[in-house]
Design a protein around this nucleic acid. Structure first.
Lengths: 343, 343
DNA sequence: GCGCTTACTGAAAGCGCATTCAGGGCCGGT
DNA sequence: ACCGGCCCTGAATGCGCTTTCAGTAAGCGC
């Protein structure tokens, strides 16, 4: 599995008839007599020499590859954020390696460990933390020495227990705003398509929504809250469950757009119309929801910007004392999937 | 930028009062007296020791991180394929690092070079090659020594010039099948939303479509072929262009689903109905198109499977002689975005 | 033309780890 | 008890590269 018989710097040096040191300098653009430099470069070219990154890193050269870890690149939410990260990374001449954990804490730690072991200059974590606090602690233990060693870490949309620079979506305020918007449309009976309760994202969004409803004197029937995974099929299943329960809700609030998409599919499959029979709202404003029919009402998050900001945080020295914390987004965008009740 | 002051194996060995060799062995699970092993493990734990991957790799340990390079993870097409790759990688206890080139050949080469330098056991390239043959050659030059060194390479949906294991979509046959299906619906005037001509994917799909049409005696007016980037906005722009030209086409074939989505948006913005006013068909069958309204007629590609197969190819020794080549998909899936003409 | 600075070059050290090679306990056999 | 053999340990080597450090040739002023 391991490549071998590799062309080394020594081979190049020998071919160019110079010393190792000179070859190294020539290849790294340091001051070397032009003639020698050309000989070295030519030799390197001819031998198809590639420096061994491991040896180079081990010998002290600095790395230019940052790591980004998210739950699932396949999910448009994470993809959009990662896109932002990559944009500013590209502007700063950094390469980025993206990893997906598929919500497996063990794998997340394996990736962090690997990035740490490779001495990546920065690690970005995207997405809600895990439900099990034990893992969260293990992660922290893994990150601590990395930070102590000079590594830079930033997180996006992730449980606040990690004491690092963070950029967070306005989950609570956004959900509250959505509640107000929906109330303004005349809705009084709501259903919520929720994700795993242990996630702070869920707690914040659900909490913000419920509290704002309560403020208006509207209660949320526990039977109208259905839990499912944060996926399209999760939304489909949760919506189906809700329908089979015979919920009287006139409006469904899905905690993520991806779930809302699944919900709409379930509704369609049941022959129900959105928003005529029931209104649907989401959260995140992933790019695709604009192109749905009807377009989805949702709480907008500047996903790409979230990623950009995180990368910027990781790139700028935190001269100040403690961690920086940014909150972004949270505005309601009304589109065709929600309608005035009774209209 | 570079972490320093790191805990090394030597620190652990000293703390456990054993030799470096013993510490190394204990941590790698080789035969060591249980008592010593425990001491080492405890010391490592206490010091938060993480082996330096560079040093480890340099000293001969084999790597378990494969690299996947695609144009843009943000595009559902690539994301789906990458998902497949990751699935089988996960099953084989491999970590995968995903890179996006954003169609910048230089960056692609940088990533390959990096992966090569890090001695990754395998590199997967996803997506059509570049328009400029010069870059393609540079890539080849970069890959050659990697392969010679024992590296494994597989490509998905990519220009065939690279002499490596490949899994390819049935572009030509699929497009031809779509032409037949559309003809069967009664359409005779077609428009095509194309991508950059230099891409073989474009050539194959466009060629297959046009030839099948020709076989039925239907010509494709060059004015009805609009070119744009393979993006949602590219599709939107191309469709708008087509409308402004006053095309008489009753059916639009977008060379990718993503473009088709943009096309539908443009149509909607112009107050036109799909499929009543005009039929729209795509290619790829990315997951989201099932949930559009109307759902998109398209040429199905088992995207996840493409990725899985590629990873499998990279994982299995090619005992046989030359490169293996798999072709997959190409079946037309009729959905709501296309209708019988005049109905 | 001599001594001194300047500018490169080459030899060598070492980054952190896996591993080979010897050496030293300990066992069983006699 | 004594010796061969086994198993485990520790010292030492090397992976490929960057980077001092010292050395040598060239360039300058006098």
């Amino acid at each position: 599995m391991q490549p071998r018989a590799h062309v080394t710097l020594e081979d190049v040096a020998r071919a160019a008839d110079v010393s190792l040191a000179t070859a190294s300098r020539a290849l790294n653009g340091m001051r070397v007599t032009p003639q020698l430099r050309d000989r070295v470069l030519a030799a390197a070219e001819k031998l198809a020499y590639t420096p061994n990154a491991h040896a180079r890193a081990l010998a002290g050269a600095s790395d230019r590859t940052v790591g980004v870890i998210c739950h699932d690149v396949t999910d448009p939410y994470f993809a959009a954020i990662a896109g932002g990260v990559m944009r500013v990374a590209g502007d700063n001449d950094l390469l980025v390696m993206l990893a997906s954990t598929f919500r497996d804490p063990e794998r997340e730690i394996a990736y962090v460990s690997m990035l740490r072991a490779e001495r990546a200059p920065a690690i970005l974590l995207i997405g809600s933390g895990f439900e099990d606090a034990r893992w969260e602690r293990a992660l922290e233990a893994e990150l601590k020495p990395y930070l102590d060693g000079g590594g830079r870490v930033a997180v996006v949309s992730r449980h606040r227990s990690l004491k690092v620079d963070s950029v967070l979506p306005e989950n609570k305020a956004g959900a509250a705003a959505m509640a107000r918007a929906l109330l303004d449309l005349g809705h009084r009976r709501f259903a919520v398509l929720s994700g795993p309760r242990a996630l702070t994202t869920v707690a914040d969004r659900l909490g913000g929504f419920r509290e704002e409803l309560a403020r208006a004197g509207v209660a949320l029937d526990p039977a109208d809250i259905v839990e499912g995974p944060f996926t399209r099929d999760g939304g489909y299943g949760a919506m189906s469950e809700l329908l089979s329960r015979g919920s009287a809700a006139t409006c469904v609030f899905a905690l993520t757009d991806v779930m809302a998409i699944g919900a709409c599919a379930a509704l369609r499959d049941q022959g129900l119309s959105v928003p005529d029979d029931i209104s649907v709202a989401g959260f995140d404003d992933i790019p695709i929801v604009r192109d749905l029919t009807p377009a989805l009402t949702t709480v907008a998050l500047p996903l790409q910007r979230l990623g950009e900001k995180a990368m910027e945080l990781a790139l700028t020295e935190n001269n100040g004392r403690r961690r920086r914390l940014l909150r972004m987004g949270g505005e309601v965008v009304l589109r065709g999937s929600t309608a005035k009740v009774g209209s």
